[in-house]
Nucleic acid binder design. Structure first.
Lengths: 225, 225
DNA sequence: GCTGGTCCTCACGGATTCGTCACGCCCGGC
DNA sequence: GCCGGGCGTGACGAATCCGTGAGGACCAGC
């Protein structure tokens, strides 16, 4: 199931696109303003963002920047502006494609498919072992050694994913915070510690002596497989 | 250096594109037919393929299929055909973008940049050998010969990076100090020695007889690969 | 309105790291 | 031979950072 976020202030077009994509099996989230788009993008991980440049509050460029600050989600821009300077700006800011209105729906769909296909990671490591626990990133489930299910809150999931997706790599505290919240910074770094501790309590065999969710003092955290 | 393969049978356009891209620092290979394009793509690994659909021998679709059979090189199609069916077919066969003639050169260049950027591996693996130890600057890990992990403090990392990023070059003590702390100077230069010593103790086979973290008396330090 | 769950702040004890001091060594100059 | 400057090493307070517990704010469901 491909999750796509549609950002479009023109209501009629938004509904038409949403219905069209839903009918084709996409899971659609809608946003009519730039701020809502950013919060929606930060709340749920999407596989694709369909973005109209003309928004009432923020510039579409700001949305691109805001998303690219922490995620590589494919962004396909749909805009009435046909000037090449707008296209160049959007593409160089990190957009993946640029379609001008009016567009042919079949072409747009093909471009969406291409964007999603490109972003598909060839190495889908969905199941990871964390000590005695099994983490299924696709199904969003954690099961302990004896088969019991472990419940994780959304924040805990985001944190665990951010660490597990980069096995062995050090992830700095700021990077984790920007991944947890859309806002880049201005947050107490001490608040990471709580969720790391909770994850350890739920996943590590010896929470006081962590072997997989390792802290690097002064630098960040690291997932050790 | 980005290597791009231009496939275009219209000679004037081919030369114009080639000159334009060469002037911008791309390394250009030219092909005027589909068969030459396929052999050129197979001979050398390219970072990007700029493909005209209208070729004298093969169909451009065949070229896409032929390349996609074994490689994921980004393919940007340039075509005079504006029909949506052609776009859909090319994109679904594996093309990454589709630009119709006549095109704006700035837009085309932006789309090429976007295609190359997407294909770039996100994790720049810069791995350096320091004697028997392996230093992964991206993951911030140091592993010794037998695979054991070595722990480095933030200051040690900064110092090691500052030296390793300039292999063979002499780095003056002041430069190292300014890199370690934001403050430019007014620091005891003797304080470098402690961290250099600690790095040697952790990385060098014989810390008392350093072979890679070399001190140049009266001047600074040097990393010898 | 109540309840359960989640998010986030605050404060405190402990561990890690930082930066300085002191001391011994090597080497070139006198 | 003597000496002084630069360098390597060990040790020690102090500052910083981390783990943990408690507790209030907020939201959804009943």
């Amino acid at each position: 199931m491909t999750r796509v976020l549609i950002v479009e202030d023109e209501r009629a077009l938004l509904r038409a696109l949403a219905m069209n994509l839903t009918a084709r099996g996409y899971e659609v989230t809608e946003a009519e303003t730039g701020t809502r788009a950013l919060s929606a993008a930060a709340a749920v991980e999407h596989d694709l963002i369909l973005l109209d440049l003309g928004l009432p509050d923020l510039s579409g460029f700001d949305v691109i920047r805001g998303v690219r600050a922490y995620a590589q989600t494919p962004i396909v821009v749909v805009s009435a502006r046909t000037g090449s300077s707008d296209k160049v700006a959007a593409l160089d800011l990190g957009a993946d494609d640029y379609v001008t209105k009016p567009f042919n729906i079949d072409e747009l769909l093909a471009r969406l498919r291409a964007a999603v296909r490109r972003a598909a990671t060839p190495d889908i490591v969905d199941v990871v072992q964390v000590g005695t626990c099994t983490v299924d990133l696709g199904a969003k489930t954690v099961t302990t050694a004896n088969g019991a299910a472990v419940h994780l809150t959304p924040t805990e999931w985001h944190l665990l994913e951010a660490l597990v997706r980069r096995p062995g790599k050090l992830v700095t505290g700021r990077a984790l915070l920007t991944e947890l919240r859309g806002t880049p910074e201005h947050t107490d770094p001490s608040y990471l510690r709580i969720y790391v501790a909770q994850l350890r309590r739920k996943l590590e065999p010896e929470p006081s002596r962590p072997r997989h969710l390792i802290t690097e003092p002064g630098m960040g955290y690291r997932f050790h497989p």
